[in-house]
């Protein structure tokens, strides 16, 4: 069991090393540029707007770049191994197929963790810069409107309220929940791509199919509600179609609760854990399906 785990970790680390040395992470430089562009471009907006925009675009970009990394690197995992024939050398060693599969997936998860972590740091940087800008311009605003406003306790009170409001928006501990949920969604996407790549014959097929499932996953909520009879009337044929959709496709839309967190609404940790648990169990199912599919695959 422990030797099995060691092999999985060895394969995972190897996958991560390959990806890092192939400069996959240099994609993140573009992310950095997006963050800087956001901060500069939105500087003509009101402070509240700026903060909302940096949050939305920051998390949106983490999701988007993470999605690209998850999709492209997972879809490449098995085809590249087959193309380089390295899969034969690994499986000829005392390594089980499932260990190979899990090791490869671990590599992608490590790569995703690293990317999301780096992007989050850049995101936090952009937010703090925004806070500093906001406080600065608030003070200038007070100075321009009322000279010597510091001597009026009421004005000081108001100023402090404004600063507090900015700080509350920027230093929202709930952003950790948002990042975790984005990450969970990315890992789930990776799991779907892995499953498809265990029987796909080309990585293009994997990429296109995973992308479709990702999109449909955002409409699964609606399909499920209609299928369960909470909405429009359906014919038998439609209902069957929606049923299959609801039973097979993961619900990606629930994760858009991230928008709520970004808008400053309170989402309790219990709900976040519920979603993370859902993603985790779904991932286990996806990995088990991948295992079944890969076990019987002719290499």
């Amino acid at each position: 069991m422990i030797s099995s785990l060691k092999r999985i970790i060895a394969i995972g680390r190897n996958t991560l090393t390959e990806a890092v040395r192939q400069r996959v992470l240099s994609v993140l430089l573009i992310f950095g540029l997006v963050m800087v562009a956001c901060s500069v471009f939105f500087s003509k907006l009101l402070i509240d707007e700026q903060i909302k925009f940096v949050k939305d675009f920051g998390c949106g970009a983490i999701g988007l770049f993470g999605f690209a990394i998850a999709l492209l690197s997972t879809a490449q995992l098995i085809p590249q191994e087959l193309h380089n024939r390295t899969i034969y050398t690994i499986l000829a060693k005392p390594v089980r197929r499932v260990e190979f599969l899990l090791g490869k997936f671990l590599g992608v998860v490590l790569l995703l963790s690293l990317s999301v972590m780096l992007m989050s740091i850049a995101f936090a940087g952009a937010l703090y810069w925004q806070e500093w800008q906001g406080i600065d311009s608030t003070q200038i605003g007070y100075d321009q409107r009322t000279p010597h406003w510091q001597s009026s306790p009421d004005m000081v009170n108001m100023y402090q309220r404004d600063i507090l409001e900015i700080e509350n928006q920027v230093r929202d501990p709930q952003l950790i929940e948002a990042i975790l949920l984005i990450f969970a969604k990315l890992v789930m996407t990776s799991g779907i791509a892995l499953l498809i790549s265990t029987f796909a014959t080309s990585s293009i097929f994997t990429i296109v199919t995973t992308f479709m499932i990702y999109l449909i996953g955002h409409m699964e909520t609606v399909a499920r509600q209609v299928w369960l009879g909470r909405g429009a009337e359906t014919t038998l044929y439609q209902s069957g179609f929606l049923g299959i959709l609801s039973l097979l496709i993961p619900d990606m839309n629930s994760f858009t609760i991230v928008d709520e967190i970004l808008a400053g609404n309170r989402v309790p940790w219990a709900h976040t854990f519920n979603l993370l648990g859902y993603a985790g169990v779904y991932l286990i199912v996806l990995l088990a399906l991948s295992e079944i599919s890969f076990r019987y695959r002719e290499l």
């Binding site: 060691k6 090393t17 193309h83 390295t86 050398t89 000829a92 060693k93 390594v95």
Partner: peptide, 28 residues
Amino acid sequence: VGFLPENPYFYAFLTGDETLRFYGKLCG
């Protein structure tokens, strides 16, 4: 059993030592 496949490429970004270390770990 040891196996050398036809026209192997291996992991292009690992060095010789790293490659052997990786395969060694797989074999315990």
